[in-house]
Design a protein around this nucleic acid. Structure first.
Length: 576
DNA sequence: GCCGTTTTCGGCCCGACTGTTTTCAGTCG
């Protein structure tokens, strides 16, 4: 028996089947069903083989009898008959043509059937040799445009990591503000606003009195390399950096409708529009239409209220059951930034941070926190000017002093202690016992085999003086892949020991997927910025976004508790 | 191919841009 296919691989096969059928001329509704099912499968937190073992494949939205049988066949044999059959007529590589802008199923079919083009490489060759112009059904102008598109096309399927996309988008907004003064509201929409880990292109939503003027200013920004599309109130450009960005502008009274529309997800929007139709209204980015009547809203809150639903936070808009629950007013109230009482993971000038204890405290007060915990590095992490027992005592004196200045706000003393190669900690127990809270981190040697790396993390979470396991996977989204950790085993050990696991804002370490797994395992969640400066406290946004994607409620979050209750809940303070 | 507190059959989201199609198909977000 071959190695069992992953959810992503199965989703990919279903997507391929849908695409090939569509190129082959199959009606859209049938082929869209495969794509829908694929998108749902990609978002699952459980493997298809486990779901199948429970006989629950058809409970997945978009999966019915036919697709569940195909999934079964893929799990058992690695193949499905329908795909094998269609690829005899249309090679799999023809799907590559769909990655070219302005090439959809119809044009891909034309290129393949009339031009004999079977791949992206073949298409590029045909463009270079001039063979495109000879394809019957493709006009001279269309061939020329296609050739130009191929020359400037970014690599297919290059999605940006979220932090990079968000920085790029905010930068673009800043440039637009400098170039055009008539902006009323402006925000990043799309998958950035939903805090999806990777982002395809940037969506900017805006309101202003003169959409035309704003679009014109946008299309001529120096950051823009090429205008892909230009309309009355919209514009799509390719930036110098290679990524694409869309701008949409509406009058302020339609802001809520547009923001919702451009936040997505696509499937969420489709489902919500179906629900709207049931209520007799056709829903679009401009509002709700019934005959001549158009009802618009300036906020998303009003939009959801009009449909008789709870407000759905953007990260939850993935068509994963949130619409049905919101309609029944049973949507879980997920943790938000206003639900956090404090931030428990940050660094100061005592180790590798750039701001002092008092500066961090004042910045946290400005954010309406009630407490913070300084968790500077222990000495074992050589690069970071880590603390030993002696310097921790000095730091305690300073923290006590700062607390007299900022009361009733409280600065706690913690440490981010290094987990050594044998799983022991970098500081002695009597030192750790004097602190308010201890975070353990496996920083180095995380690629030396799953067994030893996992053993170190498990020993750490089982240590009676470790309260939180920081960044459990070792990943830094966009720059470093995860270490060799057996995450399910670590989560189980953390839950059993009563040690919280962290969603780390700076690293975006724990994915929405792993956060769901942590909840299912019974773990307490800590949401931390891992700030190394006062500005770094903002990185908490990424952790909150991830928590909301995983539907984390405040009752599962350590630092959603007021100070005394938070401290009392730490396992070091619990009667054993 | 999926789906149903109006449907187990007959629907399936909406609007805009592009091109050469004088009324719409294809593509996209």
């Amino acid at each position: 028996m071959s190695v069992q296919m992953t959810n992503a691989e199965i989703a990919n096969q279903l997507r391929n089947l849908g695409a090939l059928l569509e190129i082959g001329g199959e009606p859209g509704f049938r082929t869209a069903a495969y794509r829908k099912a694929a998108e749902q499968i990609e978002a699952l937190a459980e493997s298809l083989s486990e779901i199948r073992a429970k006989g629950e494949l058809e409970n997945i939205p978009g999966v019915g009898k036919a697709i569940s049988e195909k999934i079964g066949s893929l799990l058992d044999t690695g193949h499905m008959k329908a795909l094998d059959e269609i690829t005899e007529k249309i090679p799999l590589s023809v799907i590559e043509l769909l990655s070219v802008p302005d090439v959809g199923p119809k044009r891909a079919a034309l290129l393949f059937e009339s031009g004999g083009i079977t791949s992206l490489v073949a298409l590029r060759e045909a463009a270079t040799s001039g063979a495109l112009a000879n394809i019957p059904g493709l006009t001279e102008k269309a061939a020329a445009k296609l050739t130009a598109t191929l020359a400037t096309m970014a690599e297919p399927d290059t999605r940006m990591p979220l932090p990079m996309a968000r920085r790029l988008g905010l930068d673009l907004i800043q440039h637009l503000r400098a170039a055009y003064s008539g902006i009323e509201k402006i925000e990043l929409g799309g998958s950035v606003r939903r805090f999806k880990e990777t982002v395809g292109d940037l969506d900017i939503v805006s309101s202003g009195k003169d959409p035309n003027a704003m679009v014109a200013a946008f299309s001529t920004l120096p950051l823009v390399a090429r205008v892909e599309m230009l309309g009355e109130n919209r514009c799509r450009v390719q930036m110098q950096s290679g990524q694409s960005a869309d701008l949409r502008v509406v009058p302020g009274e339609q802001w809520g409708s547009l923001l919702h529309h451009f936040t997505g997800s696509r499937l969420h929007n489709m489902k919500l529009r179906e629900r709207s139709l049931d209520l007799g209204w056709s829903m679009s980015e401009y509002g709700f239409r019934k005959g001549e009547e158009l009802v618009s809203f300036s906020t998303e809150e009003e939009l959801f209220a009009f449909l008789g639903m709870d407000f759905i936070p953007p990260p939850m808009r993935e068509e994963a059951g949130e619409i049905e629950l919101a309609a029944k007013h049973q949507l879980p109230k997920v943790v938000g930034i206003d639900g956090l009482r404090g931030d428990l993971h940050m660094h100061s000038t005592w180790s590798d941070g750039v701001n002092s204890t008092e500066e961090m405290a004042r910045a946290a007060i400005a954010r309406c926190y009630e407490y913070i915990c300084l968790t500077d590095h222990s000495r074992g992490l050589g690069i970071a000017n880590g603390l030993d027992a002696e310097r921790l005592m000095q730091q305690r004196v300073e923290i006590d002093h700062v607390n007299t200045l900022v009361a009733p706000f409280r600065v706690l003393q913690g440490v981010e202690v290094e987990v050594m190669n044998d799983g022991s900690l970098d500081l002695a127990d009597d030192v750790l016992a004097k602190l308010d809270l201890v975070i353990a981190s496996v920083h180095s040697g995380t690629r030396r085999g799953k067994e030893s790396t996992t053993m170190r993390a498990i020993k750490a979470v089982q240590h009676p003086l470790v309260d939180i396991l920081a960044h459990p996977t070792g990943r830094i989204l966009g720059s470093r892949g995860p270490g060799d950790f057996d995450i399910p085993a670590i989560l189980e050990a953390a839950a059993a020991a009563g040690t919280a696991v962290e969603i780390n804002g700076s690293r975006v370490d724990l994915s929405d997927f792993n956060t769901k797994a942590a909840l299912a395992a019974g773990c307490t969640i800590e949401i931390g910025s891992d700030a190394h400066s006062t500005e770094g406290l903002n990185e908490i946004d990424y952790a909150i976004g991830t928590a909301q994607r995983a539907w984390v409620t405040p009752d599962r979050v350590l630092n959603a508790l007021p100070l005394e209750k938070m401290l009392a809940s730490l396992k070091r303070n619990r009667p054993s």
